[in-house]
């Protein structure tokens, strides 16, 4: 097994909240260009798993290897700077700002540096936004409008386009279509397909069985804080996945790879 195309690996990743074992000994791997779905019931540990990888929380124990090196991010900003882009379940958008401002929130382009009073390079941010939206195939009627006036789908697309505008090594999406209508879901799924064509790795958390089988190469099932199944999407079916999710079928794979 060649290790150099493994983009992210976790070994024995564990998180306890007081006495609650939210995540226990999660061994996980994702390779360059691979799209992996994480499935499981509510409270199975999916979001906890993501929060450890993105360093929104600090793990109780275990190892995270990202890009060949063991990491100890001290916060989500460090993780993002290292190349892990996350689309959070709760949209991390500022309603009153326009599209470019949201895309560049926290990493604005500056004309020159004057500390907090650095002037913004609005033209460059606007241009990069247009390119990022074009690359992801997102249509937004007017970039200068505030996000408040946009539909849920457009907002989600902006959130996803944010990850696509910046060079990233790994994208994580936490239920990106949970709150969307049919057409909007199609739009987001197209963005994901485009990412697959470009060979960008993705961890997708989703409850939508059709979507998962449509989009990903591999399905990892969480149950009660443990990884209970690691399935090739081509060699399994919905029935199988459901039985792992509900616990009808038991299993502890040696390594999720």
């Amino acid at each position: 097994m060649s290790n150099n195309d493994v983009i992210l690996q976790t070994i024995g990743l564990t998180k306890h909240y007081g006495g609650v074992h939210a995540l226990t000994d999660a061994d996980f791997e994702i390779r360059q260009g691979e799209h992996v779905a994480i499935m499981g019931d509510n409270g199975a540990g999916k979001s906890t798993f993501v929060r450890q990888i993105t360093a929104v929380e600090q793990r109780t124990r275990g190892t995270i290897v990202f890009g060949g090196e063991e990491t100890h991010f001290n916060g989500p900003i460090a993780a993002r700077e290292a190349g892990i882009e996350t689309v959070f379940q709760t949209l991390a958008l500022a309603d009153d700002l326009d599209v470019p401002s949201n895309l560049f929130l926290g990493r604005e382009k500056r004309l020159f540096n004057l500390g907090p009073f650095s002037p913004l390079d609005n033209r460059a941010m606007r241009k990069a936004t247009e390119e990022g939206l074009k690359r992801t195939g997102v249509k937004i009627p007017n970039l200068a409008n505030s996000i408040r006036n946009m539909s849920g789908g457009q907002r989600q697309c902006v959130a996803i386009a944010r990850t696509a505008t910046f060079p990233s090594k790994l994208t994580i999406m936490d239920e990106p279509t949970a709150a969307l209508g049919v057409q909007e879901t199609v739009q987001v799924e197209n963005i994901i397909r485009n990412m697959k064509e470009r060979g960008e790795p993705l961890i997708l958390i989703s409850h939508n069985m059709r979507q998962v089988f449509d989009l990903v190469d591999r399905i990892v099932v969480f149950r009660r804080g443990r990884i209970v199944a690691n399935l090739d999407a081509k060699n399994t079916d919905g029935q199988d996945v459901v039985s792992y999710i509900t616990g009808a079928k038991e299993g502890t794979p040696e390594r999720a790879a």
Binding site: D95, L97, L105, N122
Partner: peptide, 27 residues
């Protein structure tokens, strides 16, 4: 000009608009 065209202004609006989003964005 400071509110409209600088990082300071942008972050002020962002925090008032959605503090969690601003935090997650690294402000």
């Amino acid at each position: 000009f400071i509110l409209k065209y600088t990082v300071y202004g942008k972050h002020t609006y962002a925090i008032g608009s959605n503090e969690d989003a601003a935090r997650m964005s690294g402000i």
